[in-house]
Structure formats: C-alpha cells, structure tokens
Design a binder for these strands. Structure first.
Lengths: 185, 185
DNA sequence: CTTACCATGTAAGGCGTTACATGATTCA
DNA sequence: TGAATCATGTAACGCCTTACATGGTAAG
C-alpha cells in the first residue's frame, strides 16, 4: 500500500477505540493529540473518504431530523492495517519550533526582542501544564477501565515531562538574556 | 509581503552571519538546525532564486575551473526583512512525533511492540546527546568571538535540556511497560 | 578508476491549510 | 434573533519531498 499519509493511521487509531464522526475526530485531534499531532477538516474528510473506499472503515448515517451526521467505525481490515503500521519502525519524529529559529538568529534581534519570544513561549507552556496534569490525574484514576488508558497516560506523562523541561530551560535562558542586557548598558 | 514560507527566513538568517552557497546552506540546516528545522535542496534552490528576485540576497559566481559555485550574500533590504520577521510574534511551534502516535495507540500493538519503539527512540536520543554536549562546550569556549554565539549556545542548551528530559521519560516508561508485561504473564 | 563528496537545478506529485459554501441546533 | 456550536464537504493554492538530470573534484 505504501501509505505515507500518517493522518490515515491517526484516524484508524482513534476509531480503533470508538466509532466517531469526522467532527468528533477533529475534536480528539485538537484535544488529546494536539501536543504531537494536528489536522484540519480539509484533510480529515478526504482521508475518511479514502479510508472507506479501501474498506478500512465503514460509515453509518446517524442523521436525525435533517442534521447530517455520519459515524465511522473501523473494520477488521482497517484494524489489521493499523496493527501492521504500529509494528513498523517510526519514520520521523519532527520538531519545528519557530521560537527556536527566532532564538537562534537572536543576535539580529537583540536581547530584548529575544526575551519577548521566550516569555511568550513560557506563557504558552505554563498555560498548558495544568491541563496535562489534570489529564494525568484523570487517567490514573480510570486506569483499569480500558487497556488503552495506560498508553494514553504514558503519552500524557511525556507531554508533562517535556513541558516541565521547557519551563526550566525558559527560566535559565531568561536569566542569561537579562544578564546580557545589563552588560550592554 | 505576507510571506508564510519560513525557509526564506531561515536562509536569510544563515546568510546574516556569513555568505554561503546553496549547498552550504543545506549543510548548516542539516547540522546545526536539524534539531528544530529541516529542508531539502528541492526547496532551498527555489527559495534562493525567489530571495534574489526580491533583492533580499545577491549572488556572486565563485566557480573556479568549471566547477559551478554560487555564493549568496544578504543585502541591506534582506537584513531589514529578517529583522522585521524576528520582531513578529511566533506563529507556530510544532512537534510531530510519530513515536508518540505509536505510543498513544499502543494498546493495539501490545507492550512488546511499544517497548521496541521506546527503545529505538531512546537510542536515537542517546546518540545525539554527545554531539549536543560537544556543541555546547565548543560554543562556550568561543563565546566572545561573535555576538551570535551566545544565541547559538542558548539554542544548543535547549536541545540538550529537551533530550535529557526525553531520556529520563524513556527510562520511566520502559519500567512501566515492563511491569505491564509481567502482569500479563 | 571508482567512490564519495561538491554543486546546482527541475519536475512530478503528495500533503495539508485556508477559505468558502451550506445548513441545523442550542442557548441566551 | 443572533451567536456559538454541530456537521460535512470542496476548491484553490502553497509548500515540500523525492527522484531525476548533470557534471566536477579529491582521495584511496
């Protein structure tokens, strides 16, 4: 099949847990997966159509009273495809941080401007941490309800661990940049 | 200008420090920036052509004896464009970790398969750390040679800090997965 | 003499976003 | 009644990678 499009597997993965509509898939991606994956409606619906054509998912129209609603479920064939992919080695882990780009070229922007970027970054991270902590706690409390919860928990912990490292780096970096500023005075 | 293509700024940033050929730009990206940015020749050369058309860079043919070689320098206009962009707020910091995807859907793959992914991830990180450490040390030793070095150092430290956090998460996660395996026996 | 590296460039095609188009329902 | 949310889908367009095409140079 040589499928290089990861979104197909993201959707298959989400459907392996429960049937969902395209709209709900978007919500899951924006909620739980947002830390390490993203997708827009403009790619989700076409992917879903492709997946159905390949019999990896099937759809049932659950529209009620005029409101269009299509719920997708994973098929046996789809589950096999997902498992096959999960066994394959990871191809790419990518980190694209514009903040780091602006930091790297910081000498063209000065300590002040760079400091601002760090502070905005810190703010974003600080804002996310409570959600991750809540997620970890919640998952720990329902660990045995579903085997999947253990894996969700490991992922959430990775997020927390990473964000905490970012935060301590921010603190360090801010101090260094501030002392650089003072030298300049 | 509404330039959404970040690669243009990456190139401008690199050229703000020293004149480079397209080939050397690729080397810089693959070397120093690889942790948080990537680009292929197929995007670098067209970007360079565009940049020159906009008078953000100019080229000088430094071919010697038949070997084609074009060296690009940033113009004043290009430097202004770079500075303008550096002052703008960051639009997106993106992390796309297939490893986390495969971990998240781990219940479809089992503890064994998931453990393998973590181990491969750990290996990659472990392999990178000495390079980052060397980079940090080297930059610390030549800190005053160029104002840019201070910013390069901050970036390298971010890499180190992040990778160390990943590593400690790997250790934790492996233990949890292994104890999950034993429960299953 | 052949492999690896230096060096530039183009073409095809995939992936994905934004914007648009449409319409129902819920809540204040 | 108007805003927010639910819900699906398409079209235009941009970005990027891979593969291809071409040829020089250095080292073993």
């Amino acid at each position: 099949m040589a499928n290089t499009r990861k979104l197909d597997y993201v959707i298959l993965g989400l459907l392996s847990h429960e049937p969902l509509t395209g709209y709900e898939i978007k919500q899951r991606i924006d909620g739980t997966l947002s830390m390490f994956w993203g997708a827009s409606f403009g790619s989700i619906y076409p992917s879903l159509a492709q997946l159905e054509k390949n019999d990896f998912v099937n759809s049932s129209d659950t529209s009620n009273t005029g409101r269009k609603k299509i719920c997708y479920s994973i098929t046996e064939k789809g589950r096999e495809e997902l498992k096959k992919w999960l066994k394959e080695p990871v191809e790419k882990d990518e980190l694209r941080f514009e903040t780091l780009l602006k930091l790297f070229f910081g000498s063209e922007n000065g300590a002040d401007g760079t400091l601002e970027h760090i502070e905005r970054f810190e703010e974003k991270i600080t804002h996310q941490i409570p959600y991750l902590e809540a997620s970890v706690k919640q998952l720990e409390s329902i660990l045995d309800l579903d085997p999947a919860h253990r894996y969700y928990l490991l992922t959430a912990k990775m997020g927390l661990c990473t964000y905490q490292a970012f935060l301590s780096w921010c603190t360090q970096t801010k101090d260094i940049l501030k002392s650089n500023q003072e030298e300049q005075l």
